[in-house]
């Protein structure tokens, strides 16, 4: 599945990093960056958690 990030909505909360460290990081201003765009079954649950907790609705997980 593909992870989409709308960085301009990101409020730098870091919740996604807490939920899915292998997929998200933050730059020096705290804005989220994607470490992986494609995630396999092992990480999908973590990313779903990140989607759910992101306070800016900036993350989406899309089926391909």
């Amino acid at each position: 599945m593909k992870v989409e990030l709308e960085a301009d909505k990101c409020v730098a909360s870091g919740q996604c990093v807490v939920a899915a460290m292998q997929v998200f990081d933050q730059d020096d201003d705290g804005i989220a960056i994607l470490l992986e765009e494609q995630v396999g079954p092992g990480l999908v649950d973590d990313v779903r958690e990140a989607v759910a907790v992101c306070p800016a609705a900036a993350i989406r997980l899309v089926e391909q």
């Binding site: 870091g14 990093v17 807490v18």
Partner: peptide
């Protein structure tokens, strides 16, 4: 402050 600085305190 940079994000890591505060995340640690969580």
């Amino acid at each position: 402050m940079p994000p890591r600085a505060i995340r640690r305190w969580r």
